[in-house]
């Protein structure tokens, strides 16, 4: 009990010390305690691999780099508007017909999808769902040749 006055001007190390100091904590307002459950729920979720699901704070450094690279690659894929072409009438991911002037993402293989449909997939796997061409390889080749 004697050290409860110090609590405000030192780091809160209660989590490191375990449950023994619960008495002193009663005197300190818990404004500094984050609500871990809520903050985790609000965090964006990433998929370092398709079957590995992690909130952003749980990513390893290696996974962060992997995801940052992936986001960079996806952002380099052109977005256009659907021109009414009969060759691809529907987005084969959600099976909903494109509307004229709707935003679509072009992959290097020229397959098109709704931006949100394909981006969700590319964040898990960098392959075209229609022809299975690896998007990153094609993108890198196109950089070298142009």
């Amino acid at each position: 009990m004697g050290n409860c006055l110090k609590i405000n001007n030192s780091d809160d190390i209660s989590l490191l010390q375990g449950g023994e100091i619960s008495n002193t904590q009663d005197f300190a307002p818990d404004q500094n305690d984050p609500a871990p459950i809520y903050s985790e729920l609000l965090q964006p979720i990433f998929f370092p691999s398709p079957s590995v699901r992690r909130p952003v704070s749980h990513l390893t450094e290696e996974e962060q780099v992997k995801i940052a690279k992936r986001i960079g690659l996806i952002q380099h894929l052109p977005i256009g508007t659907y021109d009414g072409s009969k060759k691809s009438r529907e987005c084969v991911i959600c099976m909903i017909d494109f509307c004229v002037d709707e935003a679509v993402r072009y992959l290097p293989c020229m397959h098109i999808y709704h931006v949100h449909c394909i981006d969700d997939w590319l964040m898990r796997s960098l392959t075209c769902p229609s022809c299975m061409e690896p998007v990153d390889a094609a993108l890198l080749t196109s950089y070298e040749t142009t």
Binding site: P50, S51, V52, R124, S125, T127, M132, P134
Partner: peptide, 13 residues
């Protein structure tokens, strides 16, 4: 699911 090779003998395709 595709991705890191849990099932080494399968092609991503």
């Amino acid at each position: 699911e595709p991705g890191d090779d849990k099932w080494g003998y399968e092609k991503a395709s």
